[in-house]
Simulated scan of single mutants.
Amino acid sequence: MVQILIAAVDFGNFPSRFAKIATLYPTKRIIFSEANFRKIKPRTLLLVDFLDLGPAQIDILRAFSRSGHTVPTLGIVETKSRHNVLQARELGFYNLIDREEKFSILFEKIREVLGDYSKPTLPSRFSEKIVKSVETTSMGLNLMSAAALTGAPLPMRFLATNAQDITAAIMTEGLDNWLSAVQCHHSHTFCHTMMVAGHTVSFSQSLGHSETEQTLLGLGALAHDLGKVKIPLSILDKPGRLTREERELVNKHPQYSEEILASRQEVPKQVVEMALWHHEFLDGSGYPNGLKGNQIPETVRLLTISDIYSALTEKRAYKESLSPRQAFAVMFEMNGKLDMDLLRKFRALVLSSEFGHVRRRATA
């Protein structure tokens, strides 16, 4: 898996806007006093902040430069300082970015080196239609995340097309194949979002919703966790259980989603509601607003069911996935929290077909 190793003398002086790259690529920070560049893993980009380097840090980088390494590097410098630029080049850093540059430029430079982190590598057993659908949806999610971080317009039309493509792929190839392909994605964040989208559009179609309604629900599913773009991937894709502090941060993602989406004219109101309220429960015990009953729209209730079912049936490093029947046993114990009428319809759909069955990828 690709990753970025960021080295600095003092991260208190590291450009805060550049720190956002941790939400788009797996990132690890090290201070020079703890640096050991000999143990850098393959497919790693070394990003060095050249601010306030002293003789000891220069010696570390000089030794690294002379080691014959093949690690791609990127240096953060003050381009107005001739000394700073020449020093970086003398130490083998020719790919440079100014400390005052926009985040979007850093993102493009890193993507040129490491490639698109969102792109999955899918086994050959999947059809061309499934592969294209998963790849373009991953691209849409990545574009949305980058736009949210840079302030650029959100690619809502592209995402709407993604939602339509998911529906078309599921209609011809089956949801089982779609979910199996999605589960091959290396990022849990992308995997979960696409699983929720697949369940949501399939459920919407089974309820007899119009194509416009299906697209809107699919769009809401794709954007429902957008607020997680403000949370480092090291937390979102953590292989073990989250700490209490990490869980508290993750639970803020609905508010983060609202902050990103609410002011965007290109985003339908229903999509904002789904992103903000998909953790609300009918009895008022959910978050972030503690809504009750009819305060929660049906679009949100449907998404909540898809979201919970996806979370229960997907495999994580720290837990086994539940079977469809096991998942529904858990969900029906949430009587009073979930819309039971919708849940019964969802269960009938899942258990009467191959709808909910996922062909798990082999694990070592």
Rank of each mutant, 00 (worst) to 15 (best):
S180T: 14
S145Q: 09
M331C: 05
Q3W: 00
T215A: 13
P254W: 02
V131S: 08
D165T: 04
V300R: 08
G220W: 06
V113M: 05
S202E: 13
H188D: 03
L207P: 04
W178M: 14
L242D: 05
R43V: 01
P232N: 02
D339S: 04
L154M: 03
K20S: 08
V182M: 08
L343K: 14
N142E: 14
N294V: 10
G293S: 12
S257P: 12
G198L: 05
T189M: 09
K132W: 09
I4K: 08
P155I: 01
L222A: 13
Y287M: 03
Y287Q: 07
N36T: 10
S127D: 07
Q205K: 14
L338Q: 09
H199C: 12
E173L: 06
E273F: 04
I4Q: 01
N251I: 11
E314D: 12
N177M: 08
G174P: 08
K315D: 10
S204H: 04
M156Q: 13
L322I: 03
N162A: 15
K20D: 04
G92N: 12
T363K: 12
I296P: 10
H224G: 06
T299C: 05
R247H: 12
I305L: 15
R264S: 11
K228L: 11
S234L: 13
H83K: 10
N84V: 04
D307A: 08
G286S: 10
L149P: 07
G284L: 02
F107C: 10
Y309I: 09
G227T: 11
N36D: 15
